[in-house]
């Protein structure tokens, strides 16, 4: 039995944090009907490159509550060291809080993640993505269907997905991970643009 139930409000914080470093994202969707399905699928292809990139997928592990360590800077893919389990809370409250090591950076100082192999930190509570957002090792089709399914994407439409990218500051980290880690491909703005392009095209998913 848990003596405290801290994790629910802590998890909420993640969505309301302030991006102190101040990367400005513009959300300008293309005009309705201006994007072909083909262009939409091309945009999706780039979105998938991002979603399946270790900087993103490592913390989108679905039913498993174990984040992953994978990608060139980690060598062989394996679960996060130290037997880390994020638990049902997805913030580690049952065992050890993610924030014990991934501290929350409030101040605007630029080299927070400069030290190689240190625990990354952002101006938000570190956590594992929701169970539904199961990306690690998943195919393009699987991730695409999840992302366009309101039941499994936090009931978000295309604009809300883009806004989520703008607001959820853990996601920003993927493009500025520091410490010698490979950033996610493209840029945050390009990724948001792709989401919008894909959305205007009607969120097409590849056949297989």
């Amino acid at each position: 039995m848990m003596k405290r139930t801290l994790w629910a409000p802590l998890a909420l914080l993640a969505a309301t944090g302030v991006w102190a470093a101040g990367e400005t994202i513009e959300i300008n969707p293309p005009a309705e009907g201006s994007v072909s399905t083909e262009e939409g699928l091309a945009a999706w292809g780039r979105i998938y490159e991002v979603a399946s990139h270790p900087r993103c997928a490592n913390c989108h592990t679905g039913e498993s509550d174990r984040p992953m360590w994978s990608g060139p800077s980690y060598g062989k893919a394996r679960p996060h060291g130290m037997n880390i389990r994020a638990g049902e809370s997805r913030i580690g409250a049952e065992h050890i809080l993610c924030s014990t090591c991934h501290t929350t950076k409030d101040e605007d100082w630029s080299n927070a993640n400069a030290v190689p192999h240190a625990a990354p930190r952002v101006a938000a509570e570190w956590q594992l993505a929701p169970v539904e957002a199961d990306w690690f090792g998943r195919s393009s089709v699987e991730i695409c269907r999840q992302l366009r399914d309101p039941e499994r994407n936090g009931d978000r439409d295309m604009l809300e997905l883009a806004a989520h990218l703008d607001h959820d500051l853990i996601l920003h980290w993927a493009w500025a991970p520091g410490g010698g880690r490979e950033p996610a491909p493209y840029s945050l703005q390009e990724h948001v643009n792709d989401i919008l392009t894909w959305g205007v095209a009607g969120m097409p998913c590849p056949e297989n």
């Binding site: 809080l97 924030s99 090591c101 409030d106 030290v115 625990a119």
Partner: peptide, 25 residues
């Protein structure tokens, strides 16, 4: 780099690696 835990303290009652928490934070 938060690999050993020897620096662990409590901040508001919760365990934190003090080598990872900037004083400004």
């Amino acid at each position: 780099i938060a690999q050993c835990g020897a620096c662990t303290v409590h901040v508001d009652g919760v365990a934190v690696r003090s080598c990872q928490l900037a004083i400004g934070d």
